[in-house]
């Protein structure tokens, strides 16, 4: 194992990629590489969060993100408590702020929050004394997803600067897309977006991205294809006419992937809708990084937790 990095993350919370500098992001990625090594050992343990309490507060159901954060905290030695909305007082009408104050009184060191409303995590972070990590707020941001995507890309391409990345699918409702646009641009990549106009958010060209509605044109010569999940309730005529039509024009299959570079890599934040936004053979194919993204997810979350813990009082 190499010497532990002395990286200092200059923020109390991780609420979004917006506001992070390139050194902030690269520092987290470097730290995450150390965490990958830990996670590949027999004894997957570190003590950087020993004695710390981490609460996973998930107002939206999530298996992979929540378990990823849980495992990350445990590998760093933290006491991890999971609170999901199904068995919380939020169901009984307690407001977000009251929940925050209640949890705060239990003196956690880090709270991981996922909420269906954009800005909810910012609101909560203003009311607590501990560090807060955004695990996804509405259609706003999902910073650890963008970081793990960047880490995965960097592992394979050895760089991010100068790559062309196409993000395809339901951009309008996607926090993953927003965080990735900001993150990839901060690291020097060129970003293309592709979606039917009904799933493209207004004013998105102001991010300095290239906007496409034709997927074959969007994928022309790209290094990375990032697919997004299409929520089931948006498939039935409200945003796109049908699953069949969506897959025909915007689903990633071998034919469309052939427009990308030969060594292009395919990513998806999961959970996938096979046959909706991505064909099974592509998802499971040689160019797919989808399973590796999950592994990097744990490493990135360890890095984020560790970086924030270094700034905690007595840390």
């Amino acid at each position: 194992m190499s010497a532990p990095s002395s990286f200092v993350f200059p923020h109390r919370h991780l609420l979004g990629i917006e506001g992070l500098s390139r050194p902030d992001i690269e520092g987290l990625l470097d730290l995450a590489e150390e965490e990958v090594a830990i996670s590949r050992q027999v004894e997957k343990k570190k003590s950087s969060l020993r004695g710390r309490t981490q609460i996973n507060l998930f107002f939206e159901a999530s298996t992979r993100t929540q378990s990823s954060f849980e495992l990350a905290g445990k590998r760093l030695g933290a006491d991890v408590m999971n609170m999901s909305v199904a068995n919380s007082s939020v169901k009984k009408g307690e407001t977000l702020i009251d929940t925050a104050m209640t949890l705060n009184a239990m003196r956690p060191d880090i709270i991981i929050v996922r909420h269906h409303a954009a800005g909810a995590v910012h609101l909560l972070a203003r009311k607590v004394d501990c560090s807060v990590v955004n695990a996804g707020d509405g259609a706003h941001e999902h910073p650890t997803q963008a970081l793990l995507d960047a880490l995965t890309i960097r592992n394979h391409k050895k760089r991010i600067e100068g790559l062309t990345v196409a993000i395809c699918g339901d951009i309008a409702h996607s926090r993953v897309a927003r965080s990735n646009i900001i993150c990839l641009q901060a690291l020097g990549a060129r970003v293309r977006l592709c979606a039917p106009p009904t799933l493209m958010p207004a004013g998105v060209e102001r991010y300095g991205v290239e906007v496409f509605t034709d997927m074959k044109k969007a994928l022309q010569g790209v290094d990375i294809v990032m697919m997004l999940r299409l929520q089931r309730e948006r498939m039935n005529g409200s945003f796109v006419p049908s699953v069949q039509e969506y897959f025909h024009y915007y689903g990633l299959d071998r034919e469309k992937l052939a427009y990308a570079k030969d060594d292009a890599l395919v990513m998806h934040p999961g959970p996938m809708n096979r046959g909706v936004e991505i064909a099974s053979d592509v998802a499971d194919g040689a160019q797919s990084l989808i399973r590796e993204q999950v592994e990097m997810g744990v490493a990135i979350r360890m890095a984020v937790l560790e970086a924030l813990a270094r700034r905690l009082p007595n840390g």
Partner: peptide, 15 residues
């Protein structure tokens, strides 16, 4: 208001 700022905040816009 629908537009860049709503998109950045991840909030649905009103055209």
């Amino acid at each position: 208001n629908e537009g860049e700022f709503a998109t950045r905040l991840g909030l649905p816009g009103i055209p």
